[in-house]
Simulated scan of single mutants.
Amino acid sequence: MLLKAGLFLLCLLWALLCLRFYTLISRDNVWQRRFIALGAGLGAGLIYILGSMILTLLRTPSPAEMEREVQQVEDVRVQGR
Rank of each mutant, 00 (worst) to 15 (best):
F35L: 14
A37H: 02
W14G: 03
R77Q: 06
L3K: 14
Y22E: 02
G39N: 05
M1N: 13
G41R: 05
S26A: 12
L58R: 07
W14K: 02
L42D: 01
L58Y: 04
R77K: 08
A15S: 13
F21Q: 14
G39H: 06
A64K: 12
I47D: 00
D75Y: 05
P63I: 06
K4V: 15
L19E: 05
L46V: 07
R68E: 12
E65I: 00
R77I: 11
K4G: 14
A5F: 09
V70P: 00
W14Y: 14
R33H: 03
L12A: 15
P61H: 10
N29P: 00
L46P: 00
S52A: 14
G39Y: 01
Y22F: 15
E74Y: 01
T56R: 12
L9E: 11
R34G: 07
V78P: 00
S62A: 11
L16M: 11
G45Y: 09
I36M: 06
W14D: 01
L7K: 05
A15I: 07
L24S: 12
V30F: 11
R34M: 08
L9W: 09
E69H: 02
N29M: 06
L2G: 08
A15R: 05
L7R: 11
L9F: 14
R81C: 02
V73R: 10
V30E: 07
L3Q: 12
L24Y: 12
I36L: 09
I36K: 00
T56H: 12
A44V: 03
L38S: 07
V73I: 05
L2D: 12
Q72M: 10
I49A: 15
F8K: 14
Y22Q: 00
S62C: 01
Y22L: 11
G80Q: 05
G43L: 00
S52T: 13
I25V: 15
C11A: 15
A40C: 08
G6H: 05
P63W: 06
E74I: 00
D75F: 04
Q32M: 06
R68F: 03
T23I: 08
